[in-house]
Design a binder for these strands. Structure first.
Lengths: 326, 326
DNA sequence: AAAGTGCAAGAAATCGATTTCGTCAAGCAC
DNA sequence: GTGCTTGACGAAATCGATTTCTTGCACTTT
């Protein structure tokens, strides 16, 4: 790897001039040409590390998600990466597994690596953004919000919950249960409130036990669905507040020999490649990729020095019925 | 962010001593304590960028995959990340979209960012590893191999093709077609050879048109399946050489009103969360996560200075029937 | 006691860019 | 012609760690 000094020597100018050529400062036509020729000849690429040390910032953004194996976050990551790429930024991807300790570790790495900014889907309300914040690096919360004063992009979860539940009511179901995520997580809370709003307003039947809390994974959804089916007076439809739990719920229905065509299922999120699509499954499509793209745009604006007041962008989910499987 | 100089000043020692404390060199008990106390007090974290500039290498590995939205690569990425994490490395994830230009751009970034090494699933045979190689950074090819002399981890694709096809023969199918990936890609070539070997040896019926080439995506699989169904004497079963094409094939079957229970389908790869599982679908599980983990291990060994001869690790796929959906 | 050995630890060089500062010359006004 | 501004550009400082050199002291060895 050629350095700026070698280029300078070959071009017969000072290193400072070489730097100026590549950073758009005032250099005469003449020397510009000399420098560019020399650089070309040596295959010179500026050493990013040296630049970073001097400039105290890099072109890397850090993306922290709970689990990249969840298709929702995969799509989100893809959106972030696409947008970052357009501006010449790279993305470091980290899985927190919803573990605050892992999250903290990664945030410290982000700080000590001089990463330009962080996009994160916080594992808990107690995220410690201290290290990042003290460096003045921008942070954008995505999908979930935090108590810290940072920009955020989220989905209108309540509206999504309302849409999903309404679709089931409109389809004629009257005993609609809800499988929500872990209690206390804002995201889930809002979605379940959407359900509650509709079942209350539309005067459907709601029994004790119609609200189930589960972890966000397939096994959680399955267990919750089994619990619902064991009720003395089980529901005839269910709203699940994320994609993986829906898979679990459908599995449970299948295992219990219940025809999904007669049992209403509404999902907040998309079922990946489901086929053949059970017609009674309502999917509310969460714009994950768009979420990522928007978050990246906001972060890049801040990195660029934008100082406008904090923003929270809320994206609306759209309903898709019957589900599209590409 | 406190620097090594501030720590040194507070502890009353030289910066060199502070560095030695954190790099395991000979420092007296006494000063060790002083330094650690001072570091603690100031919340000192070594600046990775400065270290990297000096040491000419970082603790970041670069992972290049065609498309992170393909669950196979997601699982692979997860494997890489988990292993990297254990050794304190971070992973930068890049999507090449099978575009050699994008791939090259990322490889150059990896070089100029002093990344410790690269794991890649090459977009084509013409990968240009020049920049990386000249820096002496290790590279591990994953899933596909390259003409360059680098370590590789791959799947025994031919054996996987054999296993899938054999399963169909054993299930009684006699007119088995194959939907392979784009011609000329090693990975696909081997899988299709597995199919060919079995259909030849087991004397099943093979017609012109039973071998279809398609892109690796859902639409490719669907188109290929439709073409197969339009044959004068269509097959009664099909082997698809990746997961996405299988989805497309199943969709085509569904659209044509063909009961997948009576039509044999074997997939090289896993169908994500498929439910209810069509019983006649044979899945050969490709150990994607393990692939990633192994690649990361090999890369880390090389980064650690291992100079043993080049290795190619071949992982055996295992058959799963009926498919497990978690 | 003189010379040799070992080791802790400070001083200073180093990695490769960016950026401040200063110099010099050209251009312009009066 | 003198004084002032302006722009190109080189010299040198800087970012924050690591590492090589060097020094000085304690401890052997003969």
């Amino acid at each position: 790897m050629a350095t700026i000094y070698e280029v300078a020597a070959l071009a017969g100018v000072s290193p400072a001039t070489v730097s100026r050529v590549f950073n758009g400062n005032t250099v005469s036509e003449e020397k510009q040409r000399l420098v560019r020729d020399a650089a070309q000849q040596l295959g010179f690429t500026p050493n990013k590390t040296a630049r970073r040390l001097r400039k105290q910032s890099s072109e890397i953004i850090c993306l922290l998600v709970p689990d990249i194996e969840n298709p929702f976050f995969t799509a989100l990551a893809r959106g972030v990466e696409d947008r970052a790429q357009e501006s010449g930024f790279s993305v470091v991807l980290c899985n927190t597994d919803d573990d605050p300790a892992k999250e903290l570790r990664y945030l410290q790495i982000a700080a000590s690596e001089q990463m330009a900014g962080v996009i994160l889907s916080p594992a808990s309300d107690e995220v410690d953004l201290g290290a990042i914040a003290s460096l003045g690096r921008p942070v954008v919360a995505v999908d979930r919000t935090t108590p810290y004063p940072v920009d955020a992009v989220k989905i209108d979860n309540r509206a999504a919950g309302v849409a999903a539940t309404t679709a089931l009511v409109d389809a004629g179901f009257r005993r609609i249960a809800c499988i929500a995520g872990p209690a206390g997580i804002e995201e889930t809370e809002d979605r379940y409130l959407g359900w509650k709003q509709v079942v209350t307003a539309r005067k459907t039947v709601v029994r004790d036990g119609f609200l189930q809390h589960a972890n966000f994974r397939v096994d959680g959804g399955r267990a919750a669905m089994n619990a619902l089916l064991k009720l003395a007076q089980p529901p005839d439809a269910v709203v699940t507040t994320n994609n993986l739990m829906a898979i679990g719920a459908l599995q449970a229905l299948h295992e219990n020999g219940i025809d999904p065509e007669g049992f209403g299922v509404a999902v907040l999120g998309e079922l990946p490649y489901l086929l053949p699509p059970p017609v009674s499954v309502v999917q509310v499509r969460l714009p994950a990729r768009h979420l990522g793209r928007t978050a990246a745009s906001m972060l890049l604006e801040r990195i660029g020095g934008d100082t406008q007041p904090l923003r929270t962008v809320v994206l609306r989910a759209e309903i898709a019925r019957p589900p599209l499987s590409l």
